[in-house]
């Protein structure tokens, strides 16, 4: 009961935040089957552990109060009791029974979530962790993007869960968007799996949950759950090569003649770098540097000029460009819708 109240309080606090923004990350406001199953299991576990807490905690408090030394005690020692096998047996067996119940409830959920069959309509994609950003690939759709994940909404009428394979290019990271699913680590040399079927369109946020180096805290995650129409439009847009307008030709020239293209790719151009985020549709993203700053012209200029000023320790070096070069490259990137 107590812990149910605790859960409610936490959920309530979180809801207050949710009213003003969609950046809620509470595990108590699930929007997808795995996170909802975990939420329901957590209420059961909270109820059981809360019950134990009330009973045993009550015993401790009662014993401490009831058997305290009083000023009018005669100073003699209380009766010495050395133990009782029956009592020991009872407080061994009862916990064992509780463990059995908890374990069965848990085991059922482990298999239900982890071994869920993959429906034919599922969207398959993969996430690759990098220090300190996310790469997302949709092999069947021929899309590569970064940091802002788009997946379709999944309804009972039109179930379209997302099945994600996860791995890492360098160290261990962990994909955690609390309202959609429990976290799964991205481990180099290993492929893990995660699925989610968000029921409501909108933005869901999260971040890397395994310490991965100096900028671990700024490895943020944004998941856009799109309506089927939005998602189809997004896919169509992403499949286009990077838009090239003559107006930004100077910026493109700088991009391709400086070291930018060693790390970044822009489809349809000579830039094929693999170490940094794919920038083909960079301008359509809301944030830059894996969520470290909003994607505005001013921030982008600052970022290109001196990445450490936004994300100290980021692996993108400052190229010591002139202000004109920075402006031109920024203008070019801003055209990459």
């Amino acid at each position: 009961m107590l812990s149910a109240a605790v859960a409610l309080a936490a959920a309530g606090a979180q809801r207050a935040v949710a009213l003003t923004s969609n950046t809620n990350t509470s595990i108590f406001s699930p929007e997808s089957t795995p996170s909802r199953s975990i939420y329901e299991l957590s209420l059961f576990v909270l109820a059981v552990t809360g019950g134990i807490f009330v009973v045993v905690g009550g015993l401790i408090v009662y014993a401490a109060v009831r058997f305290r030394e009083r000023p009018d005690d005669d100073g003699s020692e209380p009766p010495q009791i050395f133990g009782s096998n029956q009592i020991e047996l009872s407080w061994t067996i009862i916990p064992v029974l509780i463990v059995v119940v908890l374990f069965l409830a848990t085991a059922r959920m482990i298999f239900a979530i982890q071994d869920a069959p993959k429906p034919a309509a599922a969207l398959e994609m993969s996430a690759i962790g990098h220090q300190f950003w996310w790469e997302f690939r949709y092999p069947a759709l021929h899309i590569t993007t970064a940091n802002e994940l788009h997946i379709p909404v999944s309804t009972d009428a039109d179930p379209r869960p997302t099945f994600m394979k996860l791995t890492s290019a360098d160290v261990i990271h962990s994909f955690w968007v609390p309202r959609l699913a429990g976290k799964v680590d991205l481990v180099p040399n290993r492929i893990n799996e995660l699925w989610m079927d968000p029921h409501t369109p909108g933005l869901y946020v999260g971040q890397c949950a395994q310490f991965c180096g100096v900028e671990h805290a700024k490895m943020l995650l944004r998941v856009y759950v799109d309506t089927p129409e939005q998602f189809a439009a997004w896919v169509k847009q992403e499949q286009q090569p990077g838009a090239q307008s003559p107006a930004s030709a100077a910026g493109r020239r700088e991009f391709e003649s400086q070291a930018c293209m060693n790390c970044h790719a822009i489809a349809g151009t000579a830039a094929h770098g693999q170490f940094g985020p794919d920038l083909t549709h960079f301008a359509s993203r809301k944030t830059l540097a894996s969520g470290a700053a909003d994607n505005t012209t001013e921030n982008l200029e600052r970022w290109i000029e001196d990445p450490d000023s936004i994300k100290p320790g980021s692996l993108m070096p400052s190229m010591h460009l002139t202000p004109d070069q920075v402006r031109e490259i920024t203008a070019y990137l801003n055209t990459l819708q």
């Binding site: 909270l46 807490f53 959920m109």
Partner: peptide, 24 residues
């Protein structure tokens, strides 16, 4: 008192699906 609570939150974390949320 605190060890009791620590043990109970330990039980919560041992529930692996819940740990997928609460881990780290």
């Amino acid at each position: 008192f605190q060890f009791l609570l620590a043990g109970l939150t330990g039980i919560m974390l041992s529930v692996s699906p819940l740990d997928w949320q609460l881990h780290n």
